[in-house]
């Protein structure tokens, strides 16, 4: 499964969105789809657990969690850095 597909599953489970996640494109804005600040935090924690990563503080902002592809890109960046280290 691609990173984006896994992220999509986690968004469906933890995003508490009022709409079906299937109707949101990978680059669709999750906030305008109804993602609350608190749900975005739960999403962050669930993603950290799933991928066994920790978001650096510089990534803890709205932009990182604005869309499924933005989250997937952040996850890939962190994973690549962890492998390089």
């Amino acid at each position: 499964m691609s990173t984006a597909e896994t992220v999509r599953e986690i968004v469906a489970k933890h995003g508490k969105l009022p709409v079906d996640v299937g109707s949101i494109a990978d680059d669709g804005d999750l906030y305008s789809a109804g993602l609350s600040s608190f749900a975005s935090v739960q999403l962050m924690l669930a993603i950290e657990e799933e991928f066994d990563i920790e978001f650096p503080e510089t990534m803890l902002n709205r932009g990182t969690f604005a869309s499924i592809s933005a989250i997937a890109k952040a996850v890939d960046t962190i994973c690549a850095e962890q492998q390089a280290a």
Partner: peptide, 14 residues
């Protein structure tokens, strides 16, 4: 906590 960093950043951005 760490979740708070995100909530704080989000509050500022908005």
């Amino acid at each position: 906590g760490r979740a708070g960093k995100m909530l704080g950043a989000s509050q500022r951005e908005q």
